[in-house]
């Protein structure tokens, strides 16, 4: 069972208090009538499914009832960070790869 930091309550709380609500940073098309059927279907039905870093939404259903974002590794289940709705992640697959590369660079 995950232990997750709610950025609004500012506390670590048990996973039981939350509800996972899917991939984060998906913006509703501003003008649905103007986009193609394929693009609209992509928005409704398709989600990324990475092995590794995933940015996702969690809902503090049994707490403050706010939605927030989390950067979580789908393989190790490590929660790298949680951040408020509307903010962007500071940790991404790219930053982790860069950090690993520079560590290797240091070691060699």
């Amino acid at each position: 069972m995950h232990h997750i930091y709610c950025p609004y309550c500012e506390e670590m709380r048990e996973e039981e208090e939350y509800s996972y609500t899917g991939e984060a940073h998906i913006e509703r098309p501003k003008d649905p009538a103007a986009i193609s059927d394929d693009a609209w279907a992509d928005y409704i039905f398709f989600r990324s499914n990475p092995r590794g870093i995933h940015h996702e939404m969690w809902y503090h259903a049994a707490g403050c009832r706010r939605y927030f974002n989390a950067t979580r590794d789908t393989q190790s289940y490590k929660v790298h960070e949680t951040y408020k709705m509307g903010e962007m992640p500071t940790i991404t697959a790219a930053t982790i790869a860069a950090a690993a590369a520079s560590e290797q660079g240091d070691a060699s």
Partner: peptide, 13 residues
């Protein structure tokens, strides 16, 4: 209720 909050908080804050 979760649906209403979702749209308000994540799309139309």
């Amino acid at each position: 209720l979760g649906w209403l909050e979702l749209w308000h908080q994540t799309e139309w804050p």
